[in-house]
Amino acid sequence: MNDIFSNNPQIGVVSTFSDLINTHFQGNVNALCWYRNLDGDFKEIVSKLKLKDNITEISAEDLLALDLSEQGNTAREIILNDLQLLTDFGALPSLNLLKNYERDEEFDFISTDVYSYHVDRSPIGTDTFLCTYYGASSDILPNEQALQKIQVPEIREKLKELHDGPEEEFEDFLKDCFFDLHYQAKPNADATNLGLGHLWRLAVDHPEQKVLPCVHRAPVENEGEYRLLLIC
């Protein structure tokens, strides 16, 4: 077992999919990891898939159409099984071949793309599931080591200028434009990289949530390398 995960008070480590979906978030734990050392050649799958856009959704049919080696087939069966497990659970998993996400370049004083630390929000009770099979993997940050960007004085002042409306509507403006979802790491913050092959469940901000939502970010991709990511 990886001590980085098992000794981290933010992370709960489980050994089955059943435990992943049935374990409750509580206390400081807002990230659950089904820890796995996967067999199979995921690089082969990535090399044989076709990127149509910067983010290309890959279907089960796309995977089944690939002519793969024994190790490539092992990797394919793992991915198909993960997709089926999540679908049977009631989730809507998406397998993405990813070159890069779109960058937020609208404002020079605040970034609100997925490369920025952020939390997910939903009007209903749900969680974020993700697994990186190949390429760079995401980071999470303990909530106490993250500062909401809208609380940074110079950013807040510029957002007030951008709002240019009644002061009593400012907080609603921040929420409506999703500025309140984004964070920056505090000095000496210690992020945890989610690694390859582990299936994660991250807490989302929703009305029934009992813990703080998990602060996370997408990684900067390795040059010349695609990512293969399951997410829902």
Rank of each mutant, 00 (worst) to 15 (best):
D3M: 09
D3Y: 11
N7D: 15
G12M: 13
G12K: 15
G12N: 12
V13A: 13
S15V: 08
S15N: 15
F17I: 15
D19S: 14
L20R: 08
I21D: 09
I21R: 11
F25C: 07
F25E: 01
A31W: 00
A31S: 15
A31R: 01
L32Y: 01
W34M: 15
Y35S: 08
Y35K: 10
N37E: 14
D39K: 15
F42N: 09
K43R: 12
K43C: 11
K43N: 12
E44H: 07
E44I: 07
V46G: 08
K48V: 05
N54L: 03
N54K: 14
I55F: 07
L63C: 05
L64G: 10
L68M: 05
E70Q: 13
E70A: 14
E70L: 11
A75V: 04
I79K: 10
N81D: 11
D82W: 00
L86Y: 02
T87Y: 05
D88G: 04
A91L: 12
A91K: 05
P93N: 05
P93T: 06
S94T: 14
S94E: 12
L98D: 01
K99L: 08
E102Q: 09
E106T: 11
E106V: 08
E106P: 01
F107M: 09
D108V: 02
F109H: 11
F109D: 06
F109E: 05
F109L: 10
S111A: 04
Y117H: 13
V119H: 11
R121Y: 10
R121M: 08
P123R: 02
G125I: 06
T126M: 09
D127T: 11
T128V: 12
F129Q: 04
C131E: 00
Y133S: 11
Y134G: 00
A136P: 00
S137Y: 02
S138Y: 11
I140R: 08
L141H: 04
N143M: 02
N143F: 09
N143Y: 07
Q145E: 15
A146P: 00
Q148I: 09
I150R: 02
E154R: 05
I155W: 00
E157G: 02
K158V: 03
K160P: 04
E161M: 07
H163Y: 13
P166S: 06
E169Y: 14
E169W: 08
L174N: 05
L174W: 01
L174I: 06
K175L: 04
K175I: 08
K175F: 07
F179Q: 00
D180H: 15
D180V: 07
H182C: 07
H182G: 03
K186D: 06
P187Y: 03
N188K: 14
D190Q: 13
T192E: 06
L194E: 08
G195C: 06
L196Q: 10
H198T: 10
L202E: 00
P207T: 12
Q209E: 13
K210A: 15
V211Q: 01
P213F: 02
C214F: 02
C214V: 10
H216E: 02
R217T: 06
A218S: 13
P219D: 05
V220Q: 11
V220G: 07
E221P: 09
N222Y: 15
N222F: 14
E223V: 09
L228S: 03
L228H: 02
L228Q: 01
L229I: 15
C232L: 03
C232G: 13
